[in-house]
Nucleic acid binder design. Structure first.
Lengths: 210, 210
DNA sequence: CTTTTTCTGTTGCAAAAGCAACTTTTTATT
DNA sequence: AATAAAAAGTTGCTTTTGCAACAGAAAAAG
């Protein structure tokens, strides 16, 4: 969920205007935060990339969301009733801003600049999130592995304004993101190449159709 | 996406405070609205129930969302970049309030009571929507038909505070909601009965485990 | 720069899900 | 109340997907 307005400007505002904001750094594979403890925190990923991951009882791993520089995350954007453990895992070294809030839903009474900005920007951030979630659902409702892959590639192609693009995460993670078996996905990728739909060199994909 | 506060009270506020709000009625199978034309409308289902439906190029039907009395819907809650046709179809006779807006994201300058209420309530409505979407994604990422069914039944059971509940729509619709083949779903329901997980009389389900 | 770990790529086999076609039951419509 | 239209329920067959178990390549760590 990337913020629409200038990311650097936004981060600067958060960083300098309120003592309640903390900056922390994480190394690869570290857990940045978990969504299970009602921590009431809003996080901004300044640098790096990270995954929001869920492990279910059968041991399946699902990548619920993927964050890169400028993305905002936290429990506000993920309030469900089920009690599955949700972790934000750093995929590489990450700088993260944390803001602890009392009640993010109500207009904040503090007079510092940060809280006002946050109050103003939050609806927009959440609407962006809604868009992402709907896009995700559209992918997940596709009936075959082929359609899920082509659907996701199409999104990436649009986002990059280019028929060629590099996957934002590993193929292993892609399978967990699309909620499919990795080997079955690899098989389908091979078929997509053979059928002339895509070109694939490592994690770089080029769409050959339309 | 049901609103948290008193539904009747809420509807009354919308209905009486602004001339921009219109009430219309629809019969079974009528299309209430489509999400394709950037209509900028926010709708409240006063009575009845309806589905937000998408038909893809392969002819598959997906129930993207399901609305019953008191639910709020409209494009604000569904902004994606893809150009699939999205329809809201009445499943039974429906009364719907329509509000046409200019820019719902910015604070409304009109002084009428309605606009103020809307501005205040919208963040809450959208947060409820986020919860629903995350729940939906959690269902769709389940790897088998069995897990999808049990996951959904568990949600309904929690919602009704009862191990017995009636499905909010037909079994045909349930399959389209979970994005699975209907006959495969029926087969799995039979197995769930045989394996003693559920009891099923028509569209009424009772959970037998835990 | 070497070792260890993670990721990619493949395959045979088993299980699950989809498809098609049909009957029966239930629900609308006239 | 009779007829038409949906929805539920069933089944054999086919296709797709998942699982398990590898080997090789690439990337991270020491």
């Amino acid at each position: 969920m990337n913020i629409n307005f200038d990311v650097k400007d936004f981060i600067k505002k958060f960083e300098n205007s309120c003592h309640k904001v903390q900056k922390k750094t994480f190394v690869r594979n570290e857990v940045i935060t978990s969504y299970i403890n009602k921590r009431n925190q809003l996080c901004i990923l300044v640098n790096g990339n990270a995954n929001l991951v869920r492990y279910d009882l059968s041991g399946n791993r699902t990548i619920v969301d993927h964050f890169s520089s400028g993305d905002v995350f936290g429990e506000v954007f993920y309030s469900v009733t089920t009690n599955n453990e949700l972790l934000v895992e750093a995929r590489e070294n990450c700088d993260v801003l944390f803001y602890i809030y009392d009640d993010i839903r109500t207009k904040c009474k503090h007079t510092c600049k940060f809280h006002q900005e946050l109050s103003d920007d939050l609806p927009e951030l959440i609407l962006n999130k809604v868009t992402d979630l709907n896009t995700r659902i559209e992918l997940l409702t596709k009936r075959s592995i082929r359609d899920k892959l082509l659907g996701y590639f199409s999104i990436l192609s649009t986002r990059h304004l280019n028929k060629s693009f590099t996957l934002p995460f590993s193929l292993t993670d892609l399978a967990d993101f699309l909620s499919i078996d990795r080997s079955a996905m690899m098989r389908e990728l091979k078929l997509l190449k053979e059928d002339g739909f895509i070109e694939k060199i490592g994690n770089r994909i080029t769409l050959l159709y339309k």
